[in-house]
Nucleic acid binder design. Structure first.
Lengths: 165, 165
DNA sequence: CCTTAACTTCACAAATTTCTGAAAGAAGCG
DNA sequence: CGCTTCTTTCAGAAATTTGTGAAGTTAAGG
């Protein structure tokens, strides 16, 4: 038998990590299945798993995998790719996963900003409440700008430490 | 009748804003009642409302107010104060609300980091999965540091624009 | 084209969450 | 101290969410 270059994986240790990390994500507001699927991908060797592998590893139905993956793709936390010459779909976490996720969170903040602007207008900019909303809006606008710069710094930091673009 | 210095509030406009903004917060993962209570406080003149006022404005039972406020206080999005010489409790959003909320989110990230460190150890730092987890961990550690600096910049920015410490 | 493997959609059963009314618990005020 | 007012806790009804099996859809491979 050919020698494997990487240590063997302990499925139980993997599962323990997956469930533990997923639980933290759930606590932060992510739904259960998306959280588990995402954690499983994160803990996989290549960062890629097929639907069948996820179904097997997490003991959930293909339908559940489908739903979880649809959600994760929508918020750009995984990408889906078709294995060439096969009906198998593969789901991948990429290196930019968190960048993407944060960028997506930004669009959430945009909607908050819209709601706040509407509030300022309808309550009146010169009312006490209007002023509070204005300040809140200013905070989010500030964050928007800062996060862009921050992510650029992260890319530089990562390139230096992990040596890729 | 003495003249009021502030424009009168249109309860319907307030309610529209409250429900709309709360809906955005819910979509971002907050529970419904905490979201509505928070939005109501944000849209109030003084940033302070009593339990009874919240109950009345949102058409929910005192029990629901109690539960929502307990949660919001726990994550530092409102503070509770006792009106001196009364059994009435007052709930307040302060200017530091978002700072506090973000700081709190940081403690969530700390738990993610713990889970990741555990994963790196149990999967092995030299496995492909271990390396991916290590990079993810590095990202969060980076964010931790950056957010602290960012919030300092916000305080300066706010002081300049809104003129308070 | 037809077959078949793989994913998705849909309706529903189960589990969970949410909110309420009622009872219990604090705390001011007489 | 006990009365009264407000808040919290608790058990349960109602609504929502979640995950499944089964049928439906898509596309590869003969």
């Amino acid at each position: 038998m050919a020698e494997r270059s990487e240590p063997a994986r302990d499925p139980e240790a993997v599962s323990r990590f997956v469930e533990h990390f997923a639980a933290q994500l759930v606590e932060a507001g992510l739904q259960r299945m998306p959280a588990r699927v995402f954690a499983a991908l994160l803990a996989s060797d290549r960062g890629v798993l097929t639907s069948a592998e996820l179904s097997e590893a997490l003991k959930i139905s293909p339908a559940a995998v489908s739903g979880a993956v649809r959600y994760l793709a929508q918020v750009h936390m995984v990408s889906r790719e078709r294995e060439p010459g096969s009906r198998r779909e593969r789901y991948r976490v990429h290196g930019d996963q968190w960048y993407e996720a944060l960028t997506n969170r930004e669009t959430v903040i945009k909607r908050w900003e819209d709601a706040l602007r509407e509030g300022v207008t309808s309550l009146g900019p010169d009312t006490p409440a209007g002023r509070r909303l204005t300040e809140t809006l200013a905070f989010f606008e500030f964050i928007d700008r800062e996060v862009v710069a921050m992510m650029e710094r992260w890319r530089a930091h990562r390139a230096e430490r992990f040596g890729r673009a």
